[in-house]
Amino acid sequence: MDLIDFPEMSRGASRALRQTVDGAFRDFARAYGETLEAIFAPIGHLLTFLETLMLDSPWTLVLAVICGLVAVMSRSWKITLGTALALLAIGYLGMWEDTMRTISMVVVCTVLAVAIGIPVGIAMARSDRLRGVVTPVLDLMQTMPSFVYLIPVVMIFGLGRVPGVIAVVVYAIPPMIRLTDLGIRQVRADLLEAADAFGSTSWQKLKDVQLPLALPTIMAGVNQTIMMSLAMVVVASMIGVRGLGQPVLQAINNQYFTLGVMNGLAIVAIAITFDRATQAYGKRLQKHLEAGHG
């Protein structure tokens, strides 16, 4: 008996397996592709709207609005000044347009991830059974190489921005869900008991106690989601998402070192800006916890 080679299935059977699954999926994509595209079309509209808004407005205004938002969130002139300088450098080096596209992409993906992730996280925190089902799915989403789930997304939606957004959201949503679940589960039991004792409904408990107390943890989830969306920008450019990822892809293919580094640094600059702003905001939410005894 041969103990060296693994007794694998026959080539024919293997081919048949692949063909059956691929065939079935292709049929599914053909049958429902248009319906799914129609359902997800609003994402495309939202993205187009935001991109047009940022690209058609005077750059001074866009710069002012972004710096204003950063200032409001971080309440730090250092972070705000850093953001302004980074954006000015990006514009001067000719990456303004791609940067705006990437920012709008990240914003849309984050909004979607938060809008889906928080309700799922809440549901998960309330049901151990649901948690048991969702957790392995999240593990799968986080560990599966992103190229692999680009395949079915492209089969259904083709190339373009909408499949790009879907791929990014799939990759970036797990921390949002996990940290919402964690944040709500960490709320002290005696506070929930107090809320019960005063006659709170479960909606009041969620709104007045659980979500506010989980908010710092949820903000950490938002931060993670933004970082992961940015990390996916280059991969998403492979299926036609425009922005800072495309020049990087081009640079890889043609060995344009400077082009690659410049766009890479632009991504880093946006990442740092988003990260500092959201973290400063999250820290401020926890201010009441740091106050010492009076």
């Binding site: 002290r188 005696d190 506070l191 004792a197 006659g199 709170s200 107390l213 009441h288 916890l289």
Partner: peptide, 27 residues
């Protein structure tokens, strides 16, 4: 009914005033 707890069970994210209004707010 109203209840007072051993470990106080005050909402850390609410001010003293907001804690005292809690029971009234949910009513």
């Amino acid at each position: 009914t109203a209840m007072v707890f051993q470990k106080f069970a005050l909402m850390p994210h609410r001010t003293v005033l907001e804690n005292v209004t809690y029971g009234l707010a949910i009513r």
